[in-house]
Simulated assay, not measured.
Amino acid sequence: MAARTGTANRYYSGPPSDHFDGTMFFNPGGKPPGRFTDLLRWQFSGGRAKWPAAFPSPHPQAKPADRVDGGALRLTMVGHASLLIQTAGLNILTDPVWSERASPFSFAGPRRANAPGIAFADLPPIDLVLVSHNHYDHLDLATLKRLRQSHDARVVTPLGNDAVINRAVPGMRLSVHDWGDRVDFGAAAIHVEPAHHWSARGGRDRRMALWAGFVIETAGGNIYFAGDTGFHDGINYRLMAEKHGGFRLAILPIGAYEPRWFMAPQHQNPKEAVQGMKLCKAAFAAGCHWGTFHLTDEPVDEPAAKLAEALAAEGLPPEQFRALRPGEVWDVPAT
């Protein structure tokens, strides 16, 4: 459609591939995001559950150690898809959002239901930031500015997102990659991997920047951060197991999944997340992308309850896949 209407890609220019048609990125064998008419149908369906004004975490704000060395692995939940990963002497943030809203506006849009699980001033020195795609609940320019000023962290992100970041955060150290790329960083290697999702910052830039998950390869075990993804018949999970041989930890989204007729291609539900954990051969999993920003129809606490049900149905212990709350710290066992 982009080629037929003459729409140019404002973020990325490159040769066609199995997930880029020369103008837009796409999910191979998958589904694009819903149409505008589908969005309107959902918005006016009246099925949106009411969230409380606040959904405070039972955990106090964490004060992380400066470093976690060797094969130890410590995970601290900030909120939504923002987590601090500490292992091999490295401090890595995923999709960091410290802003009050996941929105282009400071006065409107989804507002935090709980405070970040780590106060920004209490962050340890941040070495690396993984940004999975450019939706506002994952790519927060205000937070990236703060990280540039306070930590000068390196950002690894998929193709096209550099155009968004560079305009707002000049001087940020960016490493921009396609699916399948590998980035060596200290005692770790970062692999940029497929996810089934989409991208947009507004109404005219759909799928102009790539989306991705990440694998962090360390001597203490592999870590998989799936970013934001639909289940996609488990295709990408099987690929991760085949390519990387399994994981000590998978960080998987479990929220923003209702209504299924609209959300299923782009957002997996807790039952699918459990299947994903099994398919990618993860010893442990952490559930994210729930309970902080009211994005979709399900009640605020339903993802955690549905995750517990899915684990019980599979005969799996609840400690194997934890629905993390802001401030929660998990020293992930060795495998």
Rank of each mutant, 00 (worst) to 15 (best):
L174Q: 03
W179M: 04
H19L: 02
N166T: 14
T7Y: 11
R4C: 13
P60H: 07
A3D: 13
E309I: 08
G276T: 03
K278D: 11
P299M: 08
G246K: 09
N236D: 08
K145E: 15
A119T: 03
Y237H: 12
D69S: 13
A273D: 08
K145I: 11
W98P: 02
E328F: 09
P326M: 12
A264I: 00
T296P: 00
D66T: 15
E193V: 15
H294C: 11
M24G: 06
I216N: 04
Q266L: 13
G160T: 07
P28F: 05
A3M: 09
G227I: 02
A108S: 14
A286R: 05
S45P: 06
M208R: 07
D127E: 04
A305I: 14
F55K: 03
R154S: 06
V274T: 11
T87A: 10
K63N: 14
A3L: 12
D178Y: 00
A282M: 11
V176G: 02
W261I: 05
L316W: 04
L307E: 06
T76Q: 09
F231P: 01
I92A: 06
I92V: 15
G287E: 00
E242V: 01
R204S: 12
G171N: 10
P317L: 07
P32G: 07
Y136G: 05
G47V: 04
A2Y: 15
A108C: 07
V131T: 11
D66F: 01
R204N: 12
V131S: 07
Q61M: 14
Y237M: 13
D228M: 07
Y257S: 10
H267R: 09
A286Q: 03
P64C: 05
R173W: 09
D21C: 05
F262P: 01
F107R: 05
I165M: 14
S17K: 02
